[in-house]
Structures are given as structure tokens and as C-alpha cells.
């Protein structure tokens, strides 16, 4: 026991010492570990963004920033968790466009996007991409539509969850092309990519970042991007606009949020350091290489985007007749 206790103490002391490698200023935020919550499984665009951000904020503010995945229900689980957390700056949220879509998509709105949150920064955005497994033999959206219309096999699409923009992109494709596809929701962009790699679903609809490396390696075949222009690292992949789908532009943004009533000084500090992180050329280059377009807008820009996009998605859901869940 003596030995084990001594070892235990040594171990704890060592850990405390290591954890204290960045001395926190006494009493100042962040005096406790900060959780950055994401509503999706590891590997998706919000998760990747949260991890990059956590690393840089930890270094800049001299505290511990931990990423926590609370996947499920199209991101609502994590989102709700933060909406109900104490507004002391120790629980933050990096979320995708699901933030502004889910209030209109669910029969019972999971949260109030304006009243429950303090906006911090609009971080970045990225197009959605349709892709497939090489084994399907599909090489374009036209191939897909032709096969679906032929009706000999069931067509399905994987997404990162109900209410994510890639889910709605898929629903939109069904409506616009007049085809049937079964939606198979996964708890995040990572598992969605894996499902298509396994050839479980016919195609995948996903944000660009988790998909890009596997397209580059040839393990996934890109079909089209939902961006106004061709994406700079995928010059051979057509946009939906080029394919004749008017107005088929769709993106997944990443928002940095905190619970409502966050003290203004903590908000200012987080906004300043986040914007400074995004302004670093190395960070910007890294994010762009991974398939993001950096937005770096402050709280006003974030609030304006929320005000703009909530009705936009609500209209889209109503007009397209996507079923409420």
C-alpha cells in the first residue's frame, strides 16, 4: 500500500506539474478546463475545427481546452448540452449549420437559437459534396439519376445526421432530379465517409473537409460540389449549377457559440483570440487545404448569419416538402 500510495502521489504530482505547463493567471479566465463541445462524432468538419481551435486557444489563453464529442440527433444532443450549461465560459460549442436548420426541421424545436446562445465567431464554411464508392461504377450525377430512374436497385445516401446541410442537399437532389433515395443518417461526417468507403450506401452527401483526403487518394469518386464555383483543389469536379440545377448552392458553416448570458469580458476575450488565430497565415492555409473557406466574422456577423439563415432554411424545408422529424 505504501508503495502504491507513493506511486499514486508521484503520478498525480507529475500530472499536475505537466498540466501546469501553461501557468494560468490567477483568477483570470480560463481558471478551469474549458470544454469545447461538438454535436458530431470525431472526424467531421465541426470536430476537426474544434480541435484546431482548442489547440490554439489553449496556447494563447494559457488554459486547458478539451474537445468533447456528444454525437447524435443531427447535432442536437451536443447543442442542447451547451444551451443548458452554465454561462461561465467553461462550456463552449463549435457547431455546423445544423444550428440554424434543426429549429425548423424538428416538430419539437430542440432549442431557441437566439435566446439560448451567445454568438462568438463565424469560423468558416465549406461546400457539400456528393461522392460514391468506385465499386458502384457511378461517375457523375447523371449516372446516378439514370440508375435511380431505371429503378432496378435501391439507391441510398449517407449523411452526417438529420438536419445537417448534407442531408438537405440530398433531399434537394431527390426533389430536383425527381428520384427516390433512402436517407441513412450517421452520427457525423467521419462515420458517413466510412459508410461510403464500405459501400454500405450508394452515395454520400457530406461537407468537404472529411471527404477531401479520400478523394485525393482515389478511394472515393467525387460527383459534384454544391458551391457557386468549382472548388480550387478539385478543378475537375463540376458544380451542381453547371449541371443545370439552378440555385443548388449549399454550404456547411462552422459557428463558435457559448451559452446565453456569457459575461461580456469573456466573450470579448474569446472573440479576439479566435479571430487572431484565424488570422494566422499558417492556420488559414491549413484550413483552406482541408476544404474550409475561412470566414472569421465577429459576434455581429455570426448573429446576422443566424438571423438570415433560420428563415432561409425554414423556407427551403417548407417549399421542398422535406418531412419534419
Amino acid at each position: 500500500m505504501l508503495i502504491s500510495r507513493r506511486m499514486a502521489l508521484t503520478g498525480m504530482a507529475a500530472m499536475a506539474g505537466l498540466a501546469g505547463a501553461h501557468p494560468a493567471r490567477a483568477g483570470a479566465y480560463p481558471d478551469r478546463p474549458v470544454k469545447i463541445v461538438t454535436g458530431f462524432a470525431p472526424g467531421g468538419p465541426a470536430d476537426v475545427m474544434a480541435r484546431i481551435l482548442a489547440g490554439h486557444l489553449g496556447e494563447r489563453l494559457g488554459g486547458t481546452f478539451i474537445v468533447e464529442n456528444h454525437p447524435g440527433a443531427g447535432g442536437n444532443i451536443g447543442c442542447n448540452f451547451v444551451a443548458r450549461a452554465a454561462p461561465d465560459g467553461t462550456t463552449l460549442l463549435v457547431h455546423t449549420s445544423a444550428l440554424v436548420i434543426n429549429p425548423s426541421l424538428y416538430k419539437k424545436p430542440p432549442y431557441d437559437v437566439v435566446a439560448d446562445f451567445t454568438p462568438l465567431v463565424e469560423l468558416a464554411t465549406s461546400p457539400n459534396i456528393f461522392f460514391t464508392n468506385p465499386a458502384t461504377g457511378l461517375r457523375s450525377i447523371a449516372d446516378l439519376v439514370a440508375r435511380a430512374k431505371q429503378g432496378s436497385e435501391q439507391i441510398s445516401f449517407a449523411s452526417a445526421g438529420i438536419g445537417t446541410p448534407p442531408h438537405l442537399s440530398g433531399e434537394l437532389l431527390k426533389l430536383r432530379a425527381g428520384i427516390q433515395m433512402t436517407h441513412v443518417p450517421y452520427p457525423g461526417g467521419g462515420p458517413c465517409v466510412q459508410a461510403v468507403l464500405q459501400n454500405t450506401t450508394t452515395i454520400g452527401s457530406n461537407a468537404l473537409p472529411p471527404t477531401l483526403p479520400l478523394i485525393a487518394s482515389g478511394q472515393l469518386v467525387p460527383l459534384a460540389v454544391t458551391w457557386p464555383t468549382r472548388w480550387h483543389t478539385l478543378p475537375n469536379v463540376p458544380t451542381m449549377l453547371e449541371l443545370g440545377y439552378d440555385g443548388f448552392v449549399n454550404d456547411t458553416f462552422q459557428a463558435f457559440m457559448a451559452p446565453a448570458h456569457l459575461p461580456a469580458e469573456i466573450q470579448d476575450l474569446l472573440v479576439r483570440e479566435t479571430l487572431a488565430t484565424l488570422a494566422e497565415p499558417a492556420v488559414r492555409a491549413q484550413l483552406e487545404g482541408e476544404g474550409y473557406q475561412v470566414l472569421a466574422g465577429g459576434p455581429q456577423a455570426m448573429a446576422a448569419r443566424i438571423a438570415r439563415e433560420v428563415p432561409m432554411w425554414r423556407d427551403l424545408i417548407d417549399r421542398s416538402g422535406i418531412e419534419h422529424v
Binding site: 470525431p42 472526424g43 476537426v48 480541435r51 484546431i52 474537445v67 468507403l197 483526403p213 479520400l214 491549413q286
Partner: peptide, 20 residues
């Protein structure tokens, strides 16, 4: 594949991403 299987693996990949 670069797809983390669980949160521990995501942390490891995160450590690499911080280094670009």
C-alpha cells in the same frame, strides 16, 4: 484513412493537425 474511430483517436489526430 485519417478517420478517427473514437475520441482518443480523434485527440491523436488533433495533435497532428495542430502541427499542420
Amino acid at each position: 484513412l485519417g478517420i478517427p474511430g473514437d475520441a482518443v483517436m480523434a485527440l491523436l489526430l488533433g495533435a497532428l493537425m495542430i502541427h499542420g
